[in-house]
């Protein structure tokens, strides 16, 4: 057991290192470096254009290059980046000179609240609809929730958000179209974000539950005279949840990235909006820091899910320990 967790933790290290290398290389593939692009400003970003640093700018240009270590060898740059990362220092914005840690500190609550709202909704609707669908197999309830599942993964979240705003903000005036806080302001964005994930979970939950309900131990539970409610909620659900846990971990990544879109729809001042404006302003250190943060959160979530898994399903522990 302990051995498995340790091995799983060790496995995370090369992946994080790989992510680090990837983000580092990716943003150095850009034509010109961040400082060049900063001087290029909003001009033609194709990168092939020649631009001239005027003599009056030269010293500032050199200073900026030094400040972001761009005058050093690329391998040297990587080790500086790595060392900063180990100390949880994500660097600073090339535009505003603000430390990225400060940007993250200011904007993470909006994003995490939204992600959790979406996750909560997805788990509630997904598991609920999936179980009911399986119990009422081949009835109109089942067909309705199946249609919801297909529809939910097909509708773009931003379109759903716009529809909800049209109905509940513009039409009825019940809920705000612009969202920054929590409570009432989180309802529309949460629904918008969570719909696709709840559709995926509902579908998986249904098939998993149907599978479990056909097992012998469920027949045994019924045969010994247990009430149907106890059979479903105590015996079947626990087993049917096992595959759903893994997918819920993957869904977390989808929700985390989805906040980029949802924050755009509801002008929510979270990390997603920061990422988009950093991309359009070519503020590469910020892009790098935020992408890295999301990848780390995702890796952390998957780690938690995998460890959680061994508690829910002891068989995993045994099988994986023997490999």
């Amino acid at each position: 057991m302990g051995g498995y967790i340790v091995r799983r933790l060790l496995y995370t290290i090369p992946v994080v290192l790989g992510v680090l290398v990837t983000t580092f290389i990716l943003l150095r593939l850009i034509p010109g470096d961040p400082v060049d692009l900063f001087y290029l400003g909003g001009q033609d970003p194709s990168g092939t254009v020649s631009f001239v640093v005027t003599p009056s700018q030269q010293s500032a240009y050199d200073a900026l290059r030094r400040e972001f270590n761009l005058d050093k060898h690329i391998v040297h740059q990587f080790f500086i980046y790595l060392w900063d990362f180990i100390r949880f220092d994500f660097g600073k914005s090339i535009r505003s000179q603000r430390p990225i840690n400060e940007i993250i500190g200011d904007h993470w609550p909006a994003t995490i609240q939204l992600t959790l709202a979406g996750m909560g909704l997805a788990l509630f609707i997904g598991i609920g609809a999936g179980v009911i669908s399986a119990i009422r197999h081949h009835t109109w309830v089942d067909y309705a929730s199946q249609s919801f599942a297909v529809f939910g993964v097909s509708i773009p979240s931003f379109f759903l958000g716009v529809i909800l705003v049209m109905i509940f903000s513009v039409g009825l005036g019940w809920l705000p179209a612009i969202s920054n806080g929590h409570g009432k302001e989180l309802i529309l964005p949460g629904i918008t974000l969570g719909t696709a994930a709840s559709a995926i979970l509902a579908r998986l939950m249904r098939s998993s539950m149907l599978d479990v309900l056909s097992r012998d131990y469920i027949r045994t539970a019924r045969a010994k005279g247990l009430r149907e409610r106890a059979v479903i909620w105590l015996h079947a659900l626990r087993n049917a949840l096992i595959p759903v846990v893994t997918v819920a971990g993957l869904a977390f990544g989808g929700l985390l990235t989805g906040t980029v879109i949802i924050e755009s729809v509801f002008t929510r001042q979270g990390l997603g909006l920061q990422l988009i404006s950093a991309i359009t302003q070519r503020d590469y250190p910020v892009v790098q820091g935020l992408v890295m943060l999301a990848a780390l959160l995702y890796a952390g979530m998957n780690l938690v899910v995998d460890i959680l898994y061994t508690y829910i399903d002891p068989r995993v522990r045994l099988v994986r320990a023997s490999v």
Binding site: P14, V15, V16, G18, V19, V21, T22, T23, L26, L27, L29, I30, F252, G253, G254, L256, T257, G258, V260, L275, I279, Y284, V287, V291, A294, A295, Y298, A299
Partner: peptide, 18 residues
């Protein structure tokens, strides 16, 4: 493994940023 460590759309967004 490394590419799948980026959640969902984020890898595409990162490549697009580059």
């Amino acid at each position: 493994d490394v590419m799948l460590a980026f959640p969902d759309l984020l890898l595409a967004i990162a490549i697009l940023a580059a």
